[in-house]
Each structure stands twice: as structure tokens, then as C-alpha cells.
Write a protein that binds this DNA or RNA. Sequence first.
RNA 1: GCUCCGGUCGUAUAGUCCGGUCAAGUAUACUGGCCUUUCGAGCCAGUGACCCGGGUUCAAAUCCCGGCCGGAGCACCA
Length: 507
Amino acid sequence: MSLLEQQNLAKSLGISLTKEKPKKEEHVLPPLPNANKYEKIRVRFAPNPDFAIHLGNARAAILNDEYAKIYHGIFILRFEDTSPSVKPPMLEAYDAIREDLKWLGVNWHEEYIQSERLPIYYDYAEKLLEIGGAYICTCPPEEFRKLVNSSKPCPCRDLPIEKQLKRWEGMMDGSIKKGGAVMRIKTDLNHPNPAIREWPAMRIDTKPHPLQGQKYRVWPLYNFACGIDDHLMGITHILRGKEHEVNTQRQIYLYKYFKWEYPEVIHYGRLKIEGTILSKSKMRQGIEMGLFKDWEDPRLGTIAALRRRGFLPETIRRLILEVGVKPSEATISWDNIEAINRKLLDPITKRFVFIPNPIKLEIQGLTKEFEARIPLHPDRPELGNVTYKVGPSNNTIFVPLRDISGIKVGTIFRLMNLFNVELLSPSICVYIGESIEEIRRINAPIIQWLPYGIELSIVMHDGSTIDGIVDRNILNENLPNVFQFYRFGFVKIYKEDGKIKGYYTHD
RNA sequence: GCUCCGGUCGUAUAGUCCGGUCAAGUAUACUGGCCUUUCGAGCCAGUGACCCGGGUUCAAAUCCCGGCCGGAGCACCA
């Protein structure tokens, strides 16, 4: 049925086709709890600069950014780099993260680096020791665990405050060696969850820090630094992954001692992408083992890799908003990400012809010159065309090996935007006419071709490459940029050392 | 093992708090058709889900209980 026929049928049935369709679901975030309780909403994104951020991290950044924008609040970027030896920060990661955030359209109003704030944590640690909210524990970890698992206090817990402060001094001045002592927060020894009992807040770490060198030997642990900072920075709402649920409970003890009010917390479930690694440590490991080139490797789920492959920041934001803040786990499929990106890319990308694995094809039977006009965008004629001439004296073109090898000798096919030919041998065809209707009627293939072009190597998702030739007019475009290659897919093109290089986006 | 948290089409999500308008909406994927000198986009149609079992109720995706399944945490990591 033609469109007109469909419309007529619809009319006769009393159905209106032009009636506005249900509006596309704009994914809107649920309101923040008790938002009106606070004068100014303050949220934070607190990455560990031990690697580039990936989609899972970006989720936290975008969610917080969205809320900051909705409520005209303040977004704080806080680098949590207080573990010199277990999660050693990478110097390049600080700027890489800033760059990724900017690219994602995340604006931050304040920025802090925890490793620059150690005196603050020391100050609160001492206060806590003075009011008896914490103690310095010198028990071997094994023994301590045994005690705490059976809800018993360790011998250090009830030592007098003077003794605690003395030990603290020992941690600070070096008379207690690494591993010799740790500051613990006094909690409820009978708390049903042993993981919450008597959690550690400060430990000795002597490994040089990329920003601080060996200036400090006592470092706060996550819950202490994070808990103190969230209060000091006036955070009103914390959005964090489910893996932090017990940390939230742990930190509440801290807030009770200092008589602070704990921020509102929203825990969301983990984010996975089918078939893609989203773990910083695994990605790091893979790079060390030589499996991946760097953190921009197309096989990884880092923001840098997605950017290099041609995903748009808007795609990532839409995806994150679609997934929302549910506490259940979500496994995102590439289909969905690509569909969002394709929809955004389609109207704005120019089309070019690319011939993967080009093979020469001679055209016989030409008596005049033909000019092919290939539009830069089929739906936007105002963008113009590129033109190629084919005639008796220039009758050799390149076609994709894959397409031509699928065509049997003696069958008819069409050279896109040019004319129809019949294959005489794997490398020779003959002109037989111009009718596109004829091709449609017999459902013959239409393949792209090029009389000449420039070499281009495209890196695919699995790290492999496809070589071919591309329309040289692409050199007149601003690079890097994403294009759609006819019958091939979207590709992001870069200029590297005078040559162009491509990264496959998706089909 | 212990402590938490979850389970709606293949995937993601709406609905769950405040039971009825949900014989469950949307996107994507898939199938068919239309359009089109791209195997892209667009348009039309179709297939497809409330984990299971009890209970409460006139009425349950929504409330209660049990089971099953899944996830997270149980670091001197973040």
C-alpha cells in the first residue's frame, strides 16, 4: 500500500494519521527528597583519580549535574585521592577527569582535592579522640576481627584519652610503624552487621603520593574523609551507588559524634554494559597486560573511549536519564546506546563514500560520459553533492570486495547514483542502463563505488582495523568529526600525523 | 556463612509510596508493509512482560507472608 492509499484507508476508517502522537517520554528525574528543607541544594561528584572515568562514574556525575541544574544548586567536584598505596592516584587522571566532565557538559562550581586537606582531617581526628568517639587500635587485624565479630571490644578501645592522644602522636611522628596502628570509630559493638562495627578512619601509609610526595604519613580512609567533607562542604544530597550503603551507615556514627545532620542519601543500583568491562582495576590490568592500548581503547567503557568512537555527550546524558536512579541493577545494551546516538547523529552527519577493501572494476560498454552526484546528506539537499565522472576513457572504479564477491557473474546490480551494470567477470562489468525502477523491480543490489580516493584505516570495536579508500572531499571537513559512510556506518575521523584515521562508531 | 537491597516485554524504563482509570504505556530490538538511488533516517502495523505460591480485599503489578532468583557489602580500598 502506498502512503496515499494508507492515508485514504485511514480516513475511511475514521482514523486520523496526522493527529499528534503520544509525546515522546522525556525521562524526568524524581524530585530530591526534602528538597525544600534546604536553602541551596548542594551535590557532589567525588571520583578517585586513579583512572579515567567510565560510564558508571559518569552516571553519578550526570545525575548530580542534572539535580544541580534542576534546583539551581551547587555542584562540587571532589577528588578522593587518599590512598597512596592501595588505590594510587594517577597524575594524568585529574585533568583527564576534568576534561571528561567538561565534555559531558557537567559544570562544577567548586573543586576540592582531598590530599590537600589532610590537616583538616587530622584536626577532626583529634577532636574525635578527645571526646572519646574514636581510639587508636594497635591490635593485629586478625585478632581484632575475631573480637569484633563476637561483639567484644578490643583492649585499645577503653584506654584513657591521654593514652589515645599519645598513640596518635606516635602515628603522626613516625614512632609507630606502618601497619602498627589505626584509628577506629567507636560504634555499636552489637550492630547486627559486623561490617559496620568499629570501622577504621585513619591509617599509616608511607608510599609517596603523586601530589603530596611524602609530606604525610597518616591518611584518612574513605568513610572518614568523605564523611567530614560532605559536612564541611555543605552537601545536602548524596547520590551514590549501592556499594556504599554500609558506608552511609558507618558515616552516620561520625555525624552523631559531631552532632551534624546527615545529608539525604539516594542509593542507585549498579550499571553494566553488555559485553564491556566497566571496572577501573580490570581496565588498568588489561592495559598493563597489553590487551588494551590505553584508556581510550574502543573496547573499554571509559568516557574517553566513547568520545573517541563518536558517541555524543548528549547520548550519554539521555542514556543516564533513561536509566534513572532505581536501586536495582541495570544492564545496558549497546543497541540502546547506539539507537540514541544514531538518532542524534543522523541529521547532522555528512555522508561520504567509503570503500572497504577496495577492488578494481572495469566498466565496459560506455559510449558517453556519466556524472554521478552523491548527496552529502540525502535529506538535506542544501548541503550539496560530490560529483564523479565515469566515461569511456575513465572506466575503472573501486568497489567493496565484500559486495562484489557476493555477486555472481551474469547478474545485474547498480552502482550507487550512477547506472546499472551486469557483472561479466569478477573484475569486469558492462553498462546496461540507468533505470533505478528496474533495479527495484528485480530487487538487485546497489553498491557504492569510487573512481579514486584516499586511504583510510578504521579501528573497529574489537580493536581490529578495516582498510579502504574514502572520498577525498572529506579532507575539506573540520576534523575530528563524525560522518556516515554510505552502507558502512558512522565513523569518527581524526587527522593524525598528516593522515586521517577513523574509529567506527556504529552502523 | 552473616548483613543489607532488589526482581514489569530480549534490553532499558513508566506504573508500585496513596490498590480500581493497567486485559499494563514508552524506547530499543525483532517481524511484516510503506517511503527512499545507503543495508541510515522516517512512517504504519504486529509479536512480546507484572519471578512463584499463599493471604487481605468487591478489586492486587501495586498491601502482607513464605519461597525462588539476582545484586551489593563483610579491607589499615574508594
